[in-house]
Simulated assay, not measured.
Amino acid sequence: MRSPAHSVVWLRRGAQRLGLVPTLGGSVAAWQLERAEGAFDLWRPWDGGSDLYRTASFPMVPWSNRISGGGFEEAGTFHPMRPNRAGEPYPIHGDGWLQAWQLERQAGDAAAMTLESRHFDGSPYAYRATQHFRLIDDGLEQTLEVQHLGTEALPYGLGVHPWFPRTAGTRIAAPVRGVWLSGKDPLPTAHTERIPQDWDLSRGTPAFGSFVDNAYTGWGGQARIEWPGQGMQLQLDMPDFDEDGGTAAHYCLMYRPADGPAFCFEPITQPIDAFHLEGRPGLRVLAQGQAMRMRIAWRFAELPGAACG
C-alpha cells in the first residue's frame, strides 16, 4: 500500500485505522479493523497503483455515474463533456476523483480534505468540495459537500464509491423498490419494479452472481453487508435522509462484476445518466454560493450466530 507519488495519511481509533490519499483524487487507501485473528478489511484495500478504481473508495463530485450525448443542456445552453477514463465512451463520476485534494485538518481520528476545481479539463463546473472523515468507536462518519462557485447555475450530484471485499458467503441487503435496466452498456433503457430475483437488494442478494451495474429507486437510505465466514457485518445509514428529500432525492447503485475479490455499493443522489432521464431525477441545480452535502454513518458489528473462519 505504498506509492512513490502518493502518501497515505493514517487515522486511528482503537482497533481501527483509516488511510487517506489526498493527492490521489481524495481517495481512501484502506479501512481496517484489527481483530484477534488479524486485520479485517471493511473496504477492499488500495493496491498502491495510480488507478482510482483500485483504491478502497473515492468521492464522486460534481456528479456521479455517466453522462451520455456528449454533454448536457442547462437553461438553454449546451455544455459539452469529454470522456475522462480510458476505455469509457462517456464521462464518468465527475472530475473530483481526477484531481489532487488538500489535507486541511487532521487529528488522531479525524481529518478533512478540500478541493477547489475550476473548469477542469474544459468542464463547465467551478466548485469547492470538502470531505470529512471521523472514526468513532464502532465505525466511521463520512461527509461529502460541494459548493457551486460559478456564476451560471448548474445541476449537481454527489456519491461515494466504496469497494467491499467478498467471499463466497458475502451478502448485501438494502430497501429498494425498483431498478433501471440497461442494454450492453450501463445507460438506463427502462425502469421496472419487477427487480430480477438475484439483483433484489430488498430481499438480500449474494455478492457473487450475475453481472450488475445498475441504479435502484425507492432506496430507504440504509444498507447492510454481511460476511458470515468472518462473523462481521457493516451497516450504512444516511442521518439526513428524510430532511434531505428521502427516497425522491437518494438512489443507490450496485456494481457486481462476475469475477474478482470485490464489489461496490454506492450511495448516490442521482442515477446513471440522470442528465438525460425524464425529470432529471436527483439532480439539484445550484446557483452561485449554494451547496449540497451527503452524510453517511458506517457501523460495524459482529454478526450474530455466524461462525468465524
Results as ranks from 00 to 15, higher is better:
154 L>W: 08
105 R>C: 12
15 A>P: 15
142 Q>L: 15
97 W>I: 04
110 A>C: 10
96 G>F: 06
164 F>T: 11
30 A>M: 03
282 G>C: 06
295 R>Q: 10
172 I>D: 05
64 S>H: 03
74 E>L: 06
40 F>Q: 11
284 R>A: 05
254 M>T: 10
228 P>G: 14
26 G>V: 00
8 V>H: 05
279 G>R: 01
288 Q>C: 14
56 A>L: 10
61 V>T: 09
173 A>N: 06
38 G>M: 12
28 V>P: 01
291 A>C: 10
152 E>A: 15
163 W>A: 12
253 L>G: 00
170 T>G: 07
287 A>P: 02
102 Q>G: 11
83 P>I: 02
52 L>G: 07
187 L>I: 02
274 A>L: 08
54 R>F: 04
306 A>H: 07
39 A>D: 15
37 E>M: 13
113 M>W: 09
284 R>Y: 05
302 E>K: 06
198 D>S: 11
252 C>S: 08
152 E>F: 10
51 D>H: 12
126 A>Y: 08
125 Y>V: 12
27 S>Y: 00
49 G>L: 07
179 V>S: 00
167 T>D: 15
281 P>N: 03
278 E>Q: 10
281 P>A: 01
21 V>R: 03
52 L>R: 13
223 A>C: 14
193 E>P: 04
222 Q>C: 02
24 L>K: 15
160 V>Q: 13
31 W>D: 07
85 R>C: 09
165 P>C: 04
50 S>H: 12
89 P>E: 01
28 V>H: 00
259 D>P: 01
109 D>P: 06
123 S>P: 09
93 H>R: 00
34 E>F: 01
286 L>K: 00
189 T>Y: 05
305 G>E: 11
230 Q>E: 15
109 D>W: 14
260 G>K: 05
283 L>P: 05
258 A>C: 12
172 I>K: 07
224 R>P: 06
260 G>Y: 08
111 A>E: 02
57 S>Y: 03
41 D>R: 05
66 R>S: 05
307 A>G: 14
47 D>Q: 07
261 P>G: 12
242 D>F: 03
197 Q>T: 09
169 G>D: 11
103 L>I: 04
276 H>N: 09
2 R>K: 14
31 W>P: 15
144 L>E: 08
259 D>Q: 02
207 A>H: 01
172 I>G: 06
88 E>H: 14
239 P>L: 00
92 I>C: 12
78 F>Q: 02
174 A>G: 04
130 T>R: 15
130 T>V: 15
146 V>K: 08
150 G>K: 04
96 G>K: 04
17 R>E: 15
175 P>E: 01
127 Y>M: 12
41 D>I: 05
169 G>S: 14
264 C>P: 02
177 R>K: 08
307 A>E: 13
260 G>D: 04
26 G>P: 10
302 E>H: 09
80 P>L: 02
82 R>Q: 13
126 A>D: 07
156 Y>N: 01
261 P>N: 06
44 R>L: 13
50 S>M: 11
266 E>W: 03
30 A>H: 07
294 M>V: 08
308 C>F: 12
243 E>N: 00
308 C>Q: 14
248 A>V: 02
223 A>F: 09
62 P>G: 08
147 Q>L: 09
31 W>G: 09
135 L>R: 01
300 F>Q: 07
210 S>A: 10
